[in-house]
Design a protein around this nucleic acid. Structure first.
Lengths: 231, 231
DNA sequence: ATGACTTTGTGAACGCTTGCACAAAGTCGC
DNA sequence: GCGACTTTGTGCAAGCGTTCACAAAGTCAT
């Protein structure tokens, strides 16, 4: 068994990105009353290969039983701990447009490791109103007399996002989830993840176009040169 | 110069994922009246290294001028063509909850390669109502008498997502953007991209926790660094 | 207790992605 | 026209992530 300090430092980024997937599948299994599961089945439900699942899990220790599989509850607890979901992270949503309100109304936060503790907007018409039981405040209010937050969610229009990010960083936020299109410039040590509708659609469009072109042109070159190793 | 058939087959997936980033930066530059830009500057605005930008662009041909840089308008047009944005892809949004309505109201679709041509829900209270100028229909309506769609956006609750996906595939949709949590099971040849709020937050939480643990366990790297440097 | 069977955990090979170093190809001042 | 300078495009090496193959370690029937 690997020492904890080494193992924790060594979880690859790609694995971290899949742990939430596994956790969700395990939660569903738990709700269905299933107490034990093999890697093959869990991988299938998560949309990955079983070898990848096992390698991923090997990075956080050996929690499986050979010949049997994994204890659903135990594994879920281990992943939750690895992801830091044993505590509740305070979240602020900045930007009370349609998307910001939709996120505020989304129930998937509380009880799953996150709690919305503040809502922010700069429109005087919106500031002071109640949204989902929380009173909307300005960024200045948040910095001066608001609760401390660990994670900032930006749902403002694109031009405001950079300034908002700077303000959040100044008040100590080091994890930002950005729904505004475009790249945010932040100091080292601040973690930004971007969720961009346009980007995702454009990637889909690329593949859609490639499919159409492949059908319409019947290009034999693609079969010959490109690696055709697919099941 | 490489023949088009080979070059098109050879664009790596990682590059495709960054092309929208470059395109956005170029659009912004164009709006600012800038007509030419070097890879160093464009990379900086896109949040990537200049060598990576150049290698990415090399996969779609040589559109730069050595000693000068890239023509903003020309490069934007080339990327747009590569991504298949010269035509308008018809999009359907399934699920008229808060998120679905927010996306329907989002202006970033039309004029940028996508147009929402149908809105779908299964709630009798919602079907038939007007949302953003479109009349909400059922999936059955869409299949029977709706417009053809190329891309389906799923914003339903999680339990309905799998069934919706199957219906979309059955009516010929091969590109799906899924906002519902969980993994969708689709036939080969169908492209699913998942956008999951919980996953993104959990990844942030992982890094946030790792930072806190690093500080509390006396890591000299993290101490006394009050990051004040920002552009 | 034992042998057949199941499933995990992991070293090794493979492929994809990124970063480096540098030649190629252009511009610009004079 | 020419040399100095700038910037692109790319072969190559290093690093990372995924997949394969298989030993290790357990269960279960008898």
């Amino acid at each position: 068994m690997v020492p904890e300090s080494i193992r924790r430092a060594g979880v690859p980024e790609a694995t971290v990105g899949r742990l939430p997937l596994y956790l969700r599948a395990l939660t569903t299994l738990h709700d269905q009353g299933i107490t034990s599961i093999a890697s093959e089945e869990l991988a299938s439900r998560s949309g990955v290969r079983s070898t990848q699942l096992r390698k991923d899990l090997s990075h956080l220790g050996s929690y499986g039983v050979r010949g049997v599989g994994y204890d659903v509850e135990l594994l879920a607890a281990q992943i939750a701990q690895e992801l830091g979901l044993t505590q509740e992270w305070p979240v602020v949503i900045v930007g009370m447009g349609n998307l910001g309100r939709a996120l505020a109304a989304y129930g998937g936060f509380s009880g799953r490791g996150f709690r919305i503790v503040a809502l922010v907007d700069d429109d005087p018409e919106v500031v002071g109103t109640l949204v989902e039981g929380l009173r909307v405040m300005t960024l200045a209010d948040l910095a001066a007399k608001g609760p401390t937050v660990a994670i900032g969610v930006i749902t403002t229009p694109a031009p405001a996002a950079q300034t908002v990010a700077q303000n959040l960083v100044r008040m100590g936020v080091r994890s930002i989830l950005n729904f505004a299109p475009g790249h945010l410039n932040v100091p080292d040590g601040v973690d930004v993840r971007g969720v961009d509708l346009a980007t995702e659609l454009q990637i889909l469009a690329f593949h859609e176009q490639r499919r159409l072109l492949a059908v319409s042109t019947h290009d034999p070159l693609q079969e010959g040169t490109d690696s055709e190793a697919m099941g």
